[in-house]
Design a binder for these strands. Sequence first.
DNA 1: GACATCACG
DNA 2: GACGTACGTGATGTCC
Length: 936
Amino acid sequence: MTFGKGCHLHLIDGSAFIFRAFHALPPLTRKSDGLPIGAVSGFCNMLQKYVEEATGPDAPTHVAVIFDKGSHTFRNDMYDLYKANREEMPEALRPQMPLTRRATEAFNIACKELEGYEADDIIATLAVQAREAGGRVTIISSDKDLMQLVGGGVEMLDAMKNRRIDRDGVLEKFGVYPERVVDVQALAGDSVDNVPGAPGIGIKTAALLINEFGDLETLLERAEEIRQPKRRQTLIEMRDQIELSKKLVQLDENTPLDFTLDDLEVREPDPDVLLPFLAEMEFRTLTRRIAEKLGVDAPVIVEVPAAMPGDEGNAAPEAVPFDTAAYECVREVAALEGWVAAIRERGVVAVDTETTGLDEMVVDLVGISLSTGAGRACYIPLIHKEAGRGDDLFGSDDLAEGQIGLDQALALLKPVLEDPAILKVGQNMKYDAKIFARYGVNVAPIDDTMLLSYAMHAGLHGHGMDTLSERYLGHQPIPIKPLLGSGKSAITFDRVPIDEATAYAAEDADITWRLWEMFKPQLHREQVTTVYETLERPLVPVLAEMEMAGIKVDRDVLSRMSNAFAQKMAGLEAEIHELAGETFNVGSPKQLGEILFDKMSLEGGKRGKTGAYATGADVLEDLAAEGHDLPARVLDWRQLSKLKSTYTDALQDHINKETGRVHTSYIISGAATGRLASTDPNLQNIPVRSEEGRRIREAFVAEEGKVLLSLDYSQIELRILAHIADLPGMKAAFAEGQDIHAATASEMFNVPLDQMTPEIRRQAKAINFGVIYGISGFGLARNLRIPRAEAQGFIDRYFERFPGIRTYMDQTKAFAKEHGFVKTLFGRRIHTPEINAKGPRASFAYRAAINAPIQGTAADVIRRAMVRMPEAIAGLPAKMLLQVHDELIFEVEKDATEEVIGRARAVMEGAADPAVHLDVKLTVDAGQGANWAEAH
DNA sequence: GACATCACG
DNA sequence: GACGTACGTGATGTCC
């Protein structure tokens, strides 16, 4: 096809892809030989994503990836400092450059470069040719130098933000249309490329001048007319430098090319070329995904353990392919006895349970799967029902034939599952342990692949089985959805036909085994063995006990509150409709925004990214403060609505029918920092800050004759900050038992403690928290509702008075940049893969990196306390029920209260010892009462 | 399923 | 000089 009208040329800026891929990803290496491969991996993923999305009416007819070639270009002949401040290419990236060319060719996309020219010049030349031929062009890049080409059918596409940039987009960026972009750049210069420009003039000023005078040449001719003396002088004196800058930024549209547009026609990738390349790179997931897309079999990539010093000579084990047909369905006692013997032989087994649902406190055990080696797995169906899908949707309630009796199977397995000499491996073992516990089997000792991954990879990705299998085994597990169906017609696992259940369930055990085999030896290499052994694994039985204990919740209290809330809400709703002059859904932010800012024309309507007005509490509070009644009522209504739906209503549904208690579930690997997360229900966010909300805690009660006990760390994060950042002033204040926020205020604002006002203390408190969060002037200003400059002043003074903070922040950032993770005092690693990204993502990562060691160390401390707690209170009539980040809740017989407080407090205050000696002592406050509101 | 909102530490 | 910001979570309701 000859390129012309109706054609659409895509030009991809290859170097931009590479650098983006390199900086966005952790330093991956090819397993077999350690070759750095991260950028190639990211590059291929981006190409694949691009190919997948480049369909439809907008699809390109022609496409090329353009690369830079050689470091010396004609621009260096003009100006020897051009790009002189460019940093050396990172050592890990250099060997990957040729591989990205090969990757492009493997995808069967034209790959073009030209010695002595930058990619931008080739792109310019092709874009102009295509435009003159009457075609459309999309330049896939976010390089602002290319913006001068936009217009007349040429657009840019920022692939990361998925945003098209047309002439108006360029105007937005540069303040001028594309044809004047070089003029603006010539004046503003570019520090990245070391284009000098005119000193003191940035894009804003440059655009102003160009728009006033028309173009650069006129501006320079008539420079005497510029009103501002400084600018006038600069432009007159720097004329040569500005003209040189223009030549440097002006793209060459006449690059001598040895190919034509017609050579760039889109071609289908050839599986026989692409897949072998991906396999050679050892990209497991991508190889499989693309093979699937192309409808061919993925080549097998042999699994090789990562090379280690001293490993030479270790033969790589042959990778065993996944094969569901090889799994055994255990239906006879003799067969099960065979498995038990095999497990005893091996000393370790991967275990997984299948159940009728997700609530471990309610569901029934349906079957058990076991694995004793890669590819060697079985499923033991126990209470599967006669298959009856089809005519009879619900099947029969009769047990299917050929299953070992539940009791008999458990009796055979129990000695193995409880044998201290046999290791049981699971994925999220807390779930299975709780199921087994309800059947009288106490599984121990254990390993958990989810927690192994968490100890090594926190911050990099999730730790669910699907994620881990795809990422580390290159294998997508059988999805559960087709087996169970969805919606109304969904069935429980006991109604899944046994042969299908066997493939699914045994595969889970197989995957768990393989992950364990891979992860376990990696722990020590990542130096997180102690983290795993002391902070992750021992928590499993402790949390299982707490969750099974549950906390008693008084349904009547909640029910009465729900009714009261409903009444108040109805009243408020009527008032709101009255004020609005129409009825609308108060719970719809969209409708509320339209009422407030369109109908009532109130000031301050700001639209978010979806185009809807923002109606968050901060916005409504501002409006209410101006005297508007409607937003004030909505705020009240929202508070009640939240309390009712999330707490007083929903909590009732979580009361277990058998125990009369609420049993939350903690996610050990949920938060990257080491904190726990609580779900179904979340008992870590029960209201406390508002008086009305706090009353919900009255529904959490102790059994008759017992009390609830709450012990919480006082200011644990600030104490850890004082230790880590070595802040002598703050340490002293803690040592003397002072009010830490007042002490901070005194230090910062030179106010004696006895003259402290609540207002000054409030500001100091906000700054203290800000520091923990990786402070920014903007954030503090918003929090305190003060001008940004003032907030910045506070921060500057804080840094002055507590110089250790600066050092801590700088060192933490440098560490994160170098290693890709930060550490807590106890060695927990939290990865920060985006720390080397560009733009706001890096700012996010930076603040998270500052916060993680502090929040994470506090999380480690309370984990250590929890692990030691059962032994400390053994023999006492007390149970640990809940954890809320810095607080532990116990239920205790009244007589034993003081004894439990004493022992639990000692454990908590001494939790850091002996692993870490803190310069600041930890103190614990205790409270008790008939309910949680009283105890807190 | 994404988004906005809001509850907690 | 611009980016667009406080850190970490989970549950709910609306809307597409």
